[in-house]
Design a binder for these strands. Sequence first.
DNA 1: CATTTTTTGTGCGTATTTTCACAGAAAAAA
DNA 2: TTTTTTCTGTGAAAATACGCACAAAAAATG
Lengths: 206, 206
Amino acid sequence: MITRTVPDIVVGRLPRYLQALEHMYREGIKTTSSQELGEAIGISAAQIRKDLSQFGEFGKQGTGYSVAFLVEQLQSILKLTRIWDLALVGMGDLGNALARYQGFAEHGFRITAAFDNDPEKIGKEVAGLIIQDSREMKRIIPSLGIKIAMLTVPASVAQMVAEELVDAGIRAILNYAPISLNLPDDIHVENIDPIIKLQHMTYYLD
Amino acid sequence: MITRTVPDIVVGRLPRYLQALEHMYREGIKTTSSQELGEAIGISAAQIRKDLSQFGEFGKQGTGYSVAFLVEQLQSILKLTRIWDLALVGMGDLGNALARYQGFAEHGFRITAAFDNDPEKIGKEVAGLIIQDSREMKRIIPSLGIKIAMLTVPASVAQMVAEELVDAGIRAILNYAPISLNLPDDIHVENIDPIIKLQHMTYYLD
DNA sequence: CATTTTTTGTGCGTATTTTCACAGAAAAAA
DNA sequence: TTTTTTCTGTGAAAATACGCACAAAAAATG
Ligand SMILES: NC(=O)c1ccc[n+]([C@@H]2O[C@H](COP(=O)([O-])OP(=O)(O)OC[C@H]3O[C@@H](n4cnc5c(N)ncnc54)[C@H](O)[C@@H]3O)[C@@H](O)[C@H]2O)c1
Ligand SMILES: NC(=O)c1ccc[n+]([C@@H]2O[C@H](COP(=O)([O-])OP(=O)(O)OC[C@H]3O[C@@H](n4cnc5c(N)ncnc54)[C@H](O)[C@@H]3O)[C@@H](O)[C@H]2O)c1
C-alpha cells in the first residue's frame, strides 16, 4: 500500500471541519453527515468524504459520522493531541491582543514566551507572561522546545526577526507583518493580513 | 469579445502582487520582471504572467514591468483608487488593536464607525472614533454608505450580528470570529482565524 | 423478515489550475 | 547595422482538484 502524500489544500480544510465539528459537539449533536457538515461550512458533501478518505474510513453507511469520534480523529491527524508551545514576538497592540486571547489555550496552543526589543516593554507582564528581550530568543526558544512562533513586529524588521527565529530553531511562523518572508523551504509560514483580505473583497464590490 | 469571468483564485493573488510591488516602489525600484516578482513572493513567473494576462498587457518584452504602472493598474483592477469606509463591530481587545492599526488608512481603508453593545464601552473614544451602540447599526451604516465590516465579536453572537450587518446594507464581511458564517450568496465573507492557521501548520511538524 | 431509506467510500469523467515552451518584441551588445 | 540577450503573452500540455453517481452497508420501516 502506497501512502500518497496528502495535498496541502486538503490539509488546509481539515481545521475547518474540526472547527465545525467541535461546535456541533458543544451543541450536544452526537452524529452528523457529510451533507450536514458541508452545509454548515459551505463545502460539498462529496468533497468532505473525499478529503476524509485520504486518512481512513471514519463514517458508517446509513448513519454518518460520530461527532466525538471524528473530532478525535481529526485532532490526531493534525497532531493536536498534545500541547504546542508558542513564542510571540513583538508586543505592540496586536501582540498584546493575542497574548490575552483565550482561544489559543482552549485549542492546546500555549503562549510560553513573549519577546520585544523595546527596553520600556521588556520585563513588563502581559496576561501572565513576562516580556523578554528578543536578543535572548536564541537561548530561550530552544530551551523551552518551542517550534512555532507568531510574528507581530513591524514589517520593516519582520524578515530579520524571522531569520533570528529560524536560527533559534523555530520551524513554523504565523506571520502578521504585511510582507512576504523569504525563508528556507522547510520552514512553514502562514500569513494573516487583513489588508490583503479586504483588497480581495473590494474586487467584487462597486 | 467575451469577458471571461476571472477565477477567484487569481483575484486572490493580485493583492499579494500589489503588496510586493508597493514594497519595491518604496525601495525605489523602477522596473521588475515576472521572474523577480515571483521570487519575492514565492510564485512562479509563468503564473504571474498568466494571472496578469487576464486583465490586459502590462509589460514590455525584454524590459519587464514598470513598477509604478503595474501598481496603478492593480489598484484600478481591485477598485482601490477610492477610499473604502469600514465598520468595526466588537470593540474588545482585537477591535481596539484594529482601530489603532495605521495600515488600513495607509491602504485607503478608513474605519468610519465602531460599534459595541456594552454600555460601558459605548460613548468611549478609541483612536479618534466614538464607539456607538450596535443597535444603531441599521441607521448609521447606510447613512455613511459603508459596505464593508470587520467583525470582532464573540463567536456566540457572530452569526446574529453578521445578519444585522447584512440587514444594514453591508456587502462584505471580514470575520475574525472562529465560526463559519451562513449568509446570502452575494455577501462576500473572508475569515481570519489564527487557530485554523496554526492547526494547518502542526500537521507538518513533529 | 422483506423492503425502503439513508449515507458512506470511491472509480471515473470533467473542470480548473499550473507549468511548459516558444514566437515575437524590445533592448543591449557587437 | 546586425546579432545576441532578455523577457512578455499565450497556446498547448500536464497536473491537480472537484463532483457525479453508484455499489454496498447499515438503519428504519412495514
Ligand atoms: N495592530 C493590528 O491590528 C494589526 C493588524 C494587522 C497587522 N498588523 C501588523 O502586525 C505588526 C504589529 O502591529 P502593531 O500594531 O502591534 O505594531 P506596534 O508598533 O504596536 O508593535 C510592534 C512591536 O514590535 C516591537 N519590535 C520592533 N522591532 C523589534 C525587534 N527587532 N524584535 C522584537 N520586537 C520588535 C516593538 O517594540 C513593538 O512593541 C505590524 O507588522 C503590523 O503591520 C497589525
Ligand atoms: N483577541 C485576539 O487576538 C483574537 C484573535 C483571533 C480571533 N479573535 C476573535 O475575535 C473576536 C473578538 O475577540 P476579543 O479578544 O476582542 O474578544 P472580547 O471579548 O475582548 O471583545 C468582544 C467585544 O464584542 C462586544 N460584543 C459582544 N456582543 C456584541 C453584540 N451583540 N454586538 C456588538 N458588540 C458585541 C463585547 O462587548 C466586546 O467588547 C472573538 O470572536 C475572538 O474569538 C480574537
